[in-house]
Nucleic acid binder design. Structure first.
Length: 304
DNA sequence: ACGCCTACCTGCTTGC
DNA sequence: TGCAAGCAGGTAGGCG
């Protein structure tokens, strides 16, 4: 469900509302939500007493940095949501983990489809992951060996909104790849944070057909793609995310970006640029929306 | 490296 | 109306 803009929205909400809050207790209602390396049965005891110092995001994962240096990771996957509620809020059958806060509120992890995972990691390992540039990939690899946090993040590609993610960097990553653009954008080891909605939106904006392969892009195509990816993600954040069935911010309110999407789930509706109907195809098992006029079919002999 | 498949889960929509 | 198939924003693991 949530992609980078939605997860960023959740992390910012939580930073505002629960930074400084102390977790007094936790109840795990669906054990498989608690992922390795923390055994679910010890999770509540491990987290009790911890104070949330800061909340941030890496890829599509929310990071709750605890006072003692440990980090709780929350991967929302398809239907996960983190909600801050009063203690007397109505019971909710889809809440899988409840965190009791010292001030009486609850932090609830709600997840209809149960795909999401919560981890609790030792201190030290994640610090280098969140913000750094340059030598970051090596640091992450070291952290991975010592803390196995590599399982969470070492396989992820660059953060597309970080300053270091330039058009040149994207061009370098595209070089020699023969994969379809749609599949590459969804590949978290290629770029972190883009999912099905924003991949379609970025390709429409860049006027690139989802089935074009990376090695057919010229320098101008790459610049358009780079700009489009960053624009759609930034606009998504500005609108507090795109909500379909399940996504809500930590305030429980849906985002406003869904109504601003140009192609996603707009099959047969007119393209905002040329008025021709948006088409839906399936690429790599994922539904894919594009404008057949603005995003021309790939042809065999494109400039390399 | 890539594409394809299966699995993880539940609920909503669609079509007969 | 009823029911089954199909669909959903994500990712991991396996195979060829």
């Amino acid at each position: 469900m949530p992609e980078l803009p939605e997860v960023e929205t959740v992390a910012r909400d939580l930073q505002r509302w629960v930074a400084g809050a102390t977790i007094t207790d936790a109840t795990v209602r669906w054990e498989r939500t608690i992922r390795h390396p923390q055994p679910p049965e010890r999770f509540a005891a491990e987290i009790a007493g911890a104070t949330i110092r800061r909340v941030s995001r890496r890829a599509k994962t929310v990071l709750l940095h605890l006072d003692d240096g440990r980090v709780m990771t929350v991967a929302l996957r398809m239907t996960g949501a983190l909600l801050v509620t009063p203690a007397d809020a109505a019971p909710d059958p889809y809440v899988r983990v409840v965190f009791e806060l010292a001030d009486g509120r609850q932090l609830r992890y709600r997840d209809v489809r149960k795909f999401g995972r919560i981890g609790l990691w030792p201190g030290g390992g994640l610090r280098s992951v969140g913000g750094g540039r340059g030598a970051r990939s090596r640091k992450v690899a070291e952290a991975g060996r010592r803390y196995r946090i590599g399982e969470v993040f070492s396989g992820h590609g660059p953060e597309p909104l970080q300053r270091g993610f330039t058009a040149a960097r994207l061009a370098e990553r595209l070089r020699g790849r023969s994969a379809k653009l749609k599949s590459l954008l969804l590949d978290q080891s290629f770029i972190a944070g883009v999912g099905n909605i924003y991949a379609d939106e970025a390709l429409w904006r860049a006027r690139l057909h989802p089935l074009r392969t990376a090695d057919t892009l010229d320098a101008r195509d790459v610049r358009r793609l780079h700009r489009a990816v960053r624009q759609v993600l930034r606009e998504g954040i500005a609108n507090r995310g795109a909500s379909f069935s399940d996504y809500v911010g930590a305030d429980g309110e849906p985002g406003e970006n869904a109504e601003r999407l140009a192609v996603y789930r707009r099959t047969d509706q007119p393209c905002y640029r040329c008025g021709r109907p948006i088409r839906r195809i399936v690429v790599g098992q994922r539904s894919t929306h594009y404008c057949p006029h603005c995003q021309p079919e790939p042809v065999a002999s494109e400039p390399a």
